[in-house]
């Protein structure tokens, strides 16, 4: 069974003449134990997609099924119940936003477990057990988020997301704010997690940053998923003109993948 099935998702913002469509029939399916890279540039609707799946915005049409549960018509109380179960978790770009600055690392990690109703002693035990999986040292537990480096904080955010043993984690630009060494480390941690059977949706504006870790890549353009497939196929042989432009624009160590004339022609095609 798929962990996530999104079908024909529409999301609108604003009212009457300010009404603007952010998602237009977006569909995506995610299986257990895979990393799906969701790529989209400014205004593509990628953050709206994440927010809709997490129940933070209400879709105007379409269906979202999380771990077999149709959440499309859920009210706030049902969303809260779903979140408490910890099936669905998230990691954002800025870990200072997903971690309470006034809670110690230990308390941040324990909170989701205590919410789930797990006794404190057992929760502490489990939190300790998670630290090695995200390559963090136990001595960080009594510290505050502000006392940690950006890379350490993001690994705490990942640990906090995982500690309830979710089936699906939505990561919105999780490594964009990290330096090279920390980026590689977080990516390796995510790969290890995938191998334990968790499904990950890795959202990014940058195809390059997910190319190496996503099993499948979905390209979001103007509110719709215009192309989806194995990462290798999408990058080495893109089909949709927008995907071609995206791949062709990405800086690589061997210069831009596409020549300038080719990119300008694709841009003209998309604007036509």
């Amino acid at each position: 069974m798929s962990v996530l099935e999104v079908t024909g998702l529409d999301v609108h913002y604003g009212l009457r003449r300010h009404r603007r469509q952010a998602l237009a029939g977006a569909s995506l399916t995610v299986e257990p134990g895979e990393i799906v890279g969701l790529i989209g540039e400014t205004g593509s609707g990628k953050s709206t997609f994440a927010r809709a799946v997490l129940g933070l915005v209400r879709p105007s049409a379409g269906r979202i099924v999380v771990d077999g549960e149709d959440v499309s018509g859920h009210r706030d109380r049902q969303w809260r119940a779903l979140r408490r179960r910890g099936v669905l978790q998230y990691v954002f770009q800025d870990p200072l936003r997903s971690l309470d600055p006034d809670l110690t690392i230990a308390d941040s990690l324990l909170e989701p477990l205590l919410l789930k109703g797990i006794p404190r002693v057992e929760a502490v035990e489990r939190a300790r057990g998670y630290l090695p999986r995200v390559r963090l040292d136990e001595e960080l537990l009594p510290r505050l988020p502000g006392e940690l480096s950006g890379g350490q904080r993001q690994r705490v955010a990942v640990a906090r997301a995982l500690i309830t043993e979710p089936k699906l984690v939505i990561l919105d630009e999780p490594v964009s704010a990290l330096d090279a060494a920390n980026r590689v480390q977080v990516l390796e941690i995510l790969k290890d997690l995938r191998d334990t059977g968790i499904a990950l949706v890795f959202i990014s504006h940058d195809l390059g940053s997910v190319a190496g870790i996503a099993d499948r890549v979905a390209v979001l353009y103007q509110g719709s998923v215009v192309e989806v497939g194995p990462a290798r196929d999408v990058i080495a042989a893109p089909e949709h003109p927008y995907t071609k432009l995206l791949v062709g624009s990405a800086p690589t160590l061997r210069m831009a993948a596409a020549g300038r004339a080719e990119r300008e022609a694709l841009r003209a095609l998309l604007n036509a």
Binding site: A180, R183, V184, L187, L207, G208, S209, A211, G212, I213, A231, R232, I235, A236, V247, A250, T252, L253, R254, A257
Partner: peptide, 14 residues
Amino acid sequence: ISEHEQYGLDRFLA
């Protein structure tokens, strides 16, 4: 460089 080669587009394009 290895970050690009292992985790970036270069992995496929190279």
